Simulated assay, not measured.
Amino acid sequence: MRWLTYGTDAVLVECASRAEAAAVRATVVSAAHPEVVEVVPGASTVLVSVRPGSKALGEIRASVEGADLTHPPAGDPREHVPDVRYDGDDLELVARTAGITVEKVVQLHTEAEYTVAFTGFAPGFGYLTGLPEPLRQARLDSARTRVPAGSVAVAGEFAGVYPRASPGGWRLLGRTDAVLFDPRAERPALLAPGDRVRFRSVS
């Protein structure tokens, strides 16, 4: 991994893989260093910022480099189980591409346990890892100009839920009424890195 200075009070850790980035994030978070202000994971990076003037970045680096990143701290992740109506516009396309039935798509999607690897794209949008192999499919050839809020979708190795109406090219499996982002709430974003998600099928 590479440690890159990011301004005067932060460091960007470039990792060799998504798994290594997740382990670095978990290690920093579990240490609960009082000088850490924010830990922001990306696909293969982790940004760690500390209080202005703090000397904690050296301590944080030492703790990460001394940790066993193959067995990162498990922490105490929050769990979310949003209800989903599986009636998405691309449900049959996903089934056809995977060579399975629509019912099997729903079964695979609901039996999997997902982890929020990182957030981005839009406020409240979590990139969920743990998608079963048959459902790992390419984005649409042409993105939609408007995807409704609450759309449950897949693209590549990720699953996700659109927190608000926006353009998008992911394949739509269904929709949920769960509120992914509320700027008035104490925690505006429902999903945070490290959280666990399971989807429940409802009529």
Rank of each mutant, 00 (worst) to 15 (best):
M1H: 13
P52L: 03
G53T: 02
A153I: 12
S30W: 05
F125L: 11
V106E: 10
T145C: 04
M1K: 02
F181K: 02
V84M: 04
A117Y: 10
P183V: 11
V29C: 07
Y162G: 00
L191Q: 08
G120L: 12
T101N: 05
W170G: 00
S54T: 02
V29Y: 02
V50C: 00
V37S: 08
D83F: 07
V179W: 04
H33Q: 11
T97M: 08
G88W: 14
A159T: 03
V50H: 08
V39E: 05
A98M: 06
V64T: 11
P123C: 12
S49W: 08
A16H: 14
V179T: 15
V154T: 00
L191K: 02
S54P: 01
E157I: 15
P183C: 08
R61P: 01
D68W: 13
G124C: 10
T27V: 12
G124M: 11
T45R: 11
G150T: 04
V94T: 02
V147L: 06
V147I: 05
R96T: 08
P132H: 06
Y114A: 04
A95L: 07
L128I: 05
A43C: 11
D76C: 13
P41K: 14
L47Q: 09
L135W: 00
V105G: 06
P183M: 02
H109Q: 03
H71F: 13
S54C: 03
A165L: 03
G75M: 09
P163R: 09
R18A: 15
R164A: 14
R187L: 11
S201R: 15
E65M: 10
A185L: 09
A112W: 01
S151M: 00
L12T: 14
H80F: 14
E133M: 01
